[in-house]
Amino acid sequence: MDENLDNLVICSKCHTVHKKIDLPYKKVAKCAVCGNKLYSDVENAFYKAVSYSVTALILFVVANLYPIIKVYIGSNQSILTIPSMVATLFDENFYVVGSIVLVVIFIAPLSVIFSYLALWVLTYFKIYKNFSKHIISFLMVSRNWAMVDIFGVSILVALVKLFGYAQIQPGVSAYALVLFILVDLIFLKSIKPVELWTYFSRAYDGK
């Protein structure tokens, strides 16, 4: 009855319970029923996520500072940046749409990045154990609401709609945004909760 719950892992896809084992370097544990990834080498996964969150932060700042696209229609010119998009929505009194867009393409992705960095600092100094738990929980929730990847696809769709009427030029941020999406999908969103909890236990309790 008193098995250590930290030694178990439940598949997020089919909810099958598995016993956790230590994996060799770069190996991945998959669900025996549905084949979904359960966890990988924990230290490796966490440190990768932390180091790439620094990369992601730089890319995100660039993606927000400079234009993503420049649009020319006749003699008119306009630019698209994430802040200008949110500002336009608020200017036109679309507060609900503006707020939700602000959360899903700005606040949530930044929260994910800062959660990784904060978790790394706290576990490095082995301080504020309970606060670290809340950070992991917050990280998991904010990850679900971060939709920069969907925003990237939307830009392509919008461009196709504009092709016949306008000249379009990609801005500096377009490249930064593409790289950010790749880093986000490959390193920040792919880490499994069990990997974070195992890292957490090892960092604070040495287990």
Partner: peptide
């Protein structure tokens, strides 16, 4: 679920870049 947001983003993008005196897109 979140992929439904595509249309909202597309409208927001169009409303931002097509915002001139003689032609204007709004949500």
């Amino acid at each position: 679920g979140p992929w439904s947001m595509i249309d909202v983003f597309v409208v927001s993008i169009l409303a931002t870049v097509v915002h001139f005196g003689n032609i204007k897109i709004t949500a």
